[in-house]
Amino acid sequence: MDENNHIYPIFDRMLARRDKEELLKQRGVMVWFTGLSGSGKSTIAIALERELHKRGVLCRILDGDNIRSGINNNLGFTEADRVENIRRIAEVSKLFVDTGIVTIAAFISPNNDIREMAAGIIGHDDFLEIYVSTSLEECERRDVKGLYAKARKGEIKNFTGISAPFEAPARPALTLDTAVLSVEESVGKLLELVLPKIQKK
Rank of each mutant, 00 (worst) to 15 (best):
P110N: 06
K201I: 07
K25D: 10
I61L: 10
I114C: 02
R13A: 13
I46T: 12
S37I: 11
G154F: 06
L181P: 04
L195C: 08
G146D: 08
I7R: 04
G56S: 09
I130T: 02
L36M: 14
A168Y: 05
L193Q: 02
R171H: 13
T34D: 09
G123C: 06
K20W: 06
E49Y: 01
A168T: 12
S135D: 07
V97Y: 06
D125G: 13
G40D: 01
P169L: 08
G28Q: 07
S163L: 13
N85G: 11
D63T: 09
S39H: 15
K157N: 10
R13W: 05
L190Y: 00
L176K: 01
S69E: 03
P165Y: 08
L24D: 05
R27F: 04
S135F: 03
I121F: 08
I162K: 11
V180H: 00
L36G: 11
K153T: 09
S93M: 02
N112V: 14
T134E: 04
K145Q: 10
A47K: 06
E138W: 00
E192G: 04
S42D: 14
Y131C: 05
L75W: 01
E140K: 00
Y8P: 05
E84P: 02
L193D: 05
D125E: 14
E22L: 14
G40Q: 00
R152W: 10
T160S: 13
L36K: 07
F159M: 14
K201C: 00
I198H: 12
F77I: 09
I86T: 07
G56Q: 03
H124M: 13
T99E: 14
N74Y: 02
R142G: 11
I46E: 10
M14T: 07
V92R: 07
T43L: 01
I67D: 02
V102D: 00
I67H: 01
S37K: 15
I114E: 05
R13G: 03
I156S: 05
S182Q: 06
K197Y: 04
L176S: 01
E155R: 01
P172Q: 13
V144L: 15
G154L: 12
A151R: 09
A47I: 07
A151V: 10
G154A: 08
I71V: 10
L75S: 04
G123T: 10
E22S: 14
I156P: 02
N111F: 14
R60S: 15
K145F: 10
